[in-house]
Design a protein around this nucleic acid. Structure first.
Lengths: 153, 153
DNA sequence: ATGCTTAACGCAAATTTGTTGCGTTGTTAT
DNA sequence: ATAACAACGCAACAAATTTGCGTTAAGCAT
């Protein structure tokens, strides 16, 4: 387990908001030298605290106007079946997120797709053709009020 | 509307995966000079195609072990009420994502929290104390099979 | 308590990356 | 045809990142 101290928290908070902030500025904010910030960032990345640096893109500009949330109930909760189903979902590039959950449903998926037609095709491929998918319910996002993966550090 | 060509798509695909890839490498991949890549990135950012550069953090390492998905039905769908409700959700830092949806529910929220206790407190604050929240259903994520905001470019 | 080990720091040099001016090229609209 | 424009590559320049080195502070065992 990796120990994250106060300096690290401040750094992480900042790079969540803007991963391009220069390490020198980061240093000023947290009161460390550029070099110290650099070494901390490196460690945080190596230890997996920082999973990835990424660019968040504008779905609309790129033709992915449609966000859809799908709840799924499976037929069998045998580990084997479950894993296979999970893998199927994960491997679909249009599935942005896949959660295995307790409660009324077994899986929650979030899709970013180009059209309803495309989603329709995906339901065939991922749900109807898979015997382990018992039923699913589709929720279409009319607006994405908030989208992100930030933590409230 | 901003035109995104093939070069741009390639660039975007790459920086989705790793926002730290040097522009010179990007240039090699897409067959453009570093300078051209630089100017394209600048334009993509200015025009909002690239919304943000961010670091994806490891929730577990940082004490946010719990991901929860909540479905919400509201009492009134009057624009006014709806907006107020939406704003309440958005303003909560523990709400990573908030979708306004069609179907059985009105909102879907995704929380990243530290404990069930904390979630409990949040339900009081965000649901029970708000007269416009009619009912809600909580789905607890047992595993996050896939989490991201990548587009299938 | 003293000395040893380790981990992290700051400084400054070295390296890498990002940015911009300039001249060129290719396309489109007059 | 040619003027206007947009994007390009090259190369110089600016900025940011990385690393070696000497120093300091915090445990730990003697």
């Amino acid at each position: 387990m990796f120990e994250v101290d106060n300096f690290d928290f401040q750094i992480l908070r900042a790079i969540q908001k803007d991963a391009r902030i220069p390490q020198s500025e980061l240093g000023e904010v947290v009161n460390l030298s550029t070099a110290a910030v650099n070494r901390r960032l490196k460690k945080l990345k190596e230890n997996g605290v920082i999973k990835q640096y990424t660019a968040l893109l504008n779905q609309e500009s790129l033709g992915f106007g449609l966000t859809i949330i799908t709840n799924i109930e499976v037929e069998s909760e045998q580990i084997h079946e479950l894993d296979a189903t999970r893998r199927d979902f994960e491997n679909c590039p249009y599935v942005q997120q896949c959660y295995y959950v307790t409660g009324e449903w077994d899986f929650v998926l979030i899709f970013a797709v180009k059209s309803m037609d495309q989603y329709n095709d995906l339901t065939r491929e991922l749900f109807f053709q898979k015997p382990n998918v018992k039923r699913f319910k589709t929720l279409v996002a009319m607006s994405k009020a908030k989208v992100g993966l930030e933590l409230a550090l």
